[in-house]
């Protein structure tokens, strides 16, 4: 019996540790913006004010988490890059679409789709509603048709500002429809991923979205069509374990967090600290899991070239 108990506690330990991994992955899915973003938002600034000793950052300014310079947000520019050290700040979906799609070409799909509460999860609707008001988004992805360098494609852009870009029914359905539209219209698909992983409030239904989107990606691929993913910070958990890693070509921005299990979970499992570059885009490039790291300002040009190399004709010239 004692032996049995030992075994059992061994198992419990392991499974709890494993859980922790998921906890970490999912933690990112909770709608608590990261520290650096906290400073971006005036509402959160009040909160940090009662934590005395916190440095006062004037309104409209932001402290760069990389070089610590206090920067006028306007100086980050449209691409949200630190003018002092070139750190890439996270871009929201709206800014990203603007940076990638040809001006005025983005025709958004499913603008009004929003979450319901499939598992009757306590307070989920309230959370969604307040985030919608705060972000102006309905959920964590924008999809649509556009041109890049004049060449047509279907574009999906996830937004980490909405529940950490977590994968719920709306994200899953919009991406699936985007693939299906692209398959029907023989168009390439480009997805910018950024996500903490599954949306825990939707439980198993969230998990099923991984299979659903991957299935639509498979059909699109079977039709001989091009799929490109651009992994942006952070791409983790269930999104990494599904459509993020299924591109014919997988690109990423520099110094992007990309992984399956959360860093803390892994550290808890192996009982040691992980190196700083673990699960960065540079790490994935070295291990053979992404094709190239592309600077943010070069992305539109590189994507246009990739479309060209796959014989995607310029709109109106086909």
């Amino acid at each position: 019996m004692k032996l049995l108990n030992n075994i059992r506690s061994g198992i419990d330990k392991i499974s709890v540790e494993n859980l922790k991994g998921k906890v970490t992955a999912i933690k990112d899915a909770i709608p608590v913006p990261e520290k650096k973003e906290k400073k971006e938002k005036p509402k959160k600034a009040e909160k940090s004010a009662d934590k005395d000793k916190k440095e006062e950052i004037p309104d409209g300014f932001i402290k760069c988490p990389s070089c610590s310079a206090v920067i006028d947000k306007k100086d980050l520019g449209a691409l949200k890059i630190c003018p002092k050290c070139a750190k890439l700040f996270r871009m929201n979906a709206k800014d990203r679409v603007k940076a990638i799609a040809d001006k005025g070409s983005f025709d958004e799909f499913d603008i009004n789709m929003e979450s319901v509460n499939p598992l009757d999860f306590p307070d989920y609707e309230v959370k969604i509603k307040s985030l919608q008001e705060k972000t102006g988004l309905k959920d964590a992805v924008k999809t649509g048709r556009c041109t890049i360098g004049g060449r047509p494609c279907v574009l999906g852009v996830m937004d980490s500002g909405f529940m950490m870009g977590s994968l719920g029914s709306v994200v899953g359905e919009k991406l699936t429809r985007a693939f299906e539209y692209a398959t029907e219209n023989k168009l390439p698909v480009i997805i910018f991923t950024c996500s903490g992983g599954a949306r825990m409030q939707e439980g198993i239904i969230s998990l099923m979205q991984m299979a659903k989107v991957s299935a639509a990606a498979a059909k699109h691929s079977d039709a001989g069509l091009l799929y490109v993913t651009v992994l942006t910070d952070p791409t983790t958990g269930g999104v990494t374990a599904s459509y993020a890693m299924l591109g014919d070509i997988i690109l990423s921005e520099p110094k992007t967090l990309i992984g399956f299990a959360g860093r803390r979970v892994i550290e808890g499992t192996i009982k040691q600290k992980l190196p700083d570059d673990f699960q960065t885009s540079e790490f994935l490039l070295e291990h053979g899991f992404i094709d190239a790291i592309v600077e943010r300002e070069s992305l539109p040009g590189v994507l246009a070239d990739i479309l060209k190399l796959h014989n995607v004709e310029k709109a109106g010239e086909a």
């Binding site: 991957s214 890693m245 992984g259 299990a261 790490f283």
Partner: peptide
């Protein structure tokens, strides 16, 4: 769950699962 470890990440745990789904 899939093992959360250093080797697992280095060898693409996410990619391996994704590939199976597809």
């Amino acid at each position: 769950g899939a093992y959360p470890g250093v080797g697992a990440e280095e060898r693409g745990q996410g990619e391996a699962i994704a590939r199976n789904l597809m």
